[in-house]
Simulated assay, not measured.
Amino acid sequence: MSVTAVGAFTDEQLELRKTVRALLAKHADPAAVRKAAESERGYDAALWELLCQQVGVAALAIPEEFGGIGATAVETHVVFEELGRTLAPTPMLGSVVLAAQAILASGDTDACERLLPGIAEGTSVAALCWTGAEGSWDTDNVGVTAQGDVLTGSSHFVLDGSYADVLVVAAAVDGVVALFEVDPAQDAVTRRRVPTMDPTRTLAVVEFAGATGRLLTSDGAAALERVREIACVALSAEQVGAAEQALANTVEYSKSRVQFGRPIGSFQALKHRMADLYFLVETARSASYAAVASLAEASESAASDAAVAKVYCSEALQSVTGDSIQLHGGIAITWEHDAQLFFKRAHGSAQLFGQPRAYLTSMKSAAGLTA
C-alpha cells in the first residue's frame, strides 16, 4: 500500500486511522495521558497492549518473516499522526521505530529472529542507546566505547531506556561506530529516568561499566543513518497530528471566549492569525506526506525529504503551539490546561534526532550553498 504526497490514502489506511483514533479517544483522554505520564514507566501499559493486540501497531513496520505485518511506512505514519493528536505516551517511537529499525538495519538475521517478534507483539520493549551527553545524534559521535565485546560509557536521551528489556547500543570500536545488543539485566548496566521538558516523553540515561555486548554490525554509522531517516519521517507525522489538534483546541476556545460582548474568534485579526496557523499545519502535512511517500517508495530523494519534514514540521508545531498559548491567554500557562503540554511536546520533539538548524546546514552543504 502507498500514499501520494497529497494524502490519497487507501481504504485500509483510512480504516486504520479510524480504528486508532477511536481507541485513543476512549483510552487516551487528557486525564489519562497525564496519569500515564506520571506513572513509573511513563506510559499506560494497558493502552499499549490494546494498540498492539487489537490493532497491531507495533507489528506494522516489522517484516512478516520476523513476526510482523510487513506493511509500508505509510501505515505507521497514520498511527503516529493519531498518537500526536492525543500526546499519548507509548513505546512506539523508541521501541518500534528506533530500536526495531536499528536491529533490521544491522542485517543480523539471528537478532531479528530472536528480538523482533516480541517487539511486534508489544510484549518486549527495546531501546536504542545512541547519543552522548551533548545530544548531537551524529552517526560518528556516540557516548559509548567498546573493547572487543566489553562496553563502557553512557548514552543519553534514550527513549524508553529506563524500562526496556532489550538495548541496542551504538559504541565506538577503534574510532568506528558499531551496534551491539546488550542485556540490561547485567550488573554493569545502570539506568535512570531523567526529568524532561515534555512530561509525555520518557527519556533515560544508560551507563555501561564493562557491560558485555553482542556485535550486531560493525557498520553502525550506515545503520544509524537509515534509522534517523525513518525516525524523522515518523516524528513529522506525530508533529502534524499534534499541531492539528493544538489548532483545533485554539479555534474551539476562540468560539467560546467572550470579550467586548462577542466571541474573540469573530475578530478579524484573530481570524487572520488562525488562518495563518491553518496554512502552517497543512503545509507541514504536505511535507510529512511527501517524506513518507518517498520513504515507502525508496525514492532517491528520501533522505532529503525526511530532512525537510524534520525541519518544517518541527518549526510548524512550535509556531502553532506558541500562538496557541498566546491566543488562550493566561490560562494556557497553567499546569491544569493542556495547551502547555502541546507546547512542551513541540519544543522537546524539535530536539530529537538533531536540531532543525543541523539539518539546514547539512542541506545547504549538500546543495553547495555557504549561506
Rank of each mutant, 00 (worst) to 15 (best):
E121V: 00
F66V: 09
A45L: 07
E81C: 00
V55F: 06
T90N: 10
T86R: 13
S95G: 02
V97S: 08
E121K: 14
A73I: 00
C112N: 03
C52N: 15
T72Y: 02
D44Y: 08
G56D: 12
H77W: 12
E82N: 03
H77N: 10
P89A: 05
R85T: 06
W130V: 05
F66H: 13
A127N: 01
S136R: 13
A105R: 12
V125R: 01
S106R: 09
T76W: 09
T72M: 02
G122R: 08
G132Q: 05
Q101C: 05
R85L: 01
F66Y: 15
W130C: 03
A111I: 06
H77L: 04
T86L: 02
A58Q: 10
A59R: 11
A88L: 05
V55A: 05
P89N: 07
A100Y: 00
L51P: 03
A71V: 10
S124Q: 11
P91Y: 03
A88V: 04
C129S: 10
E113L: 09
A105L: 07
A71N: 13
E82R: 02
L51Y: 03
P63S: 11
A58K: 03
V74W: 13
P89R: 03
M92P: 00
A102T: 05
W137T: 04
I119E: 03
L87I: 15
Q101T: 12
W137A: 04
E49Q: 15
A73C: 05
W137H: 13
M92E: 13
L116M: 11
R114Q: 14
L116H: 09
G132C: 01
A71K: 15
A126L: 08
W48V: 15
L128K: 08
C112Y: 02
E65R: 15
A73T: 04
D110W: 05
L115T: 09
A127P: 01
R114N: 08
P89C: 05
V97L: 11
G70C: 12
D110M: 10
D138Q: 14
W137R: 09
A59F: 08
R85Q: 11
D110C: 05
C52T: 15
V55D: 04
G56H: 11
T131S: 10
L83G: 07
G67V: 05
V55T: 07
Q101N: 14
A120N: 10
V74Q: 11
D110R: 15
G94T: 12
Q54D: 15
I103D: 07
W137S: 02
V125C: 07
H77Y: 14
A46S: 13
E75R: 12
V57W: 06
V78E: 08
T72G: 12
G67P: 04
E113Y: 00
A88S: 12
S124L: 10
W130E: 09
E75P: 06
Q101A: 00
H77Q: 14
E82Q: 13
T90F: 10
A46W: 06
A100V: 01
A99T: 00
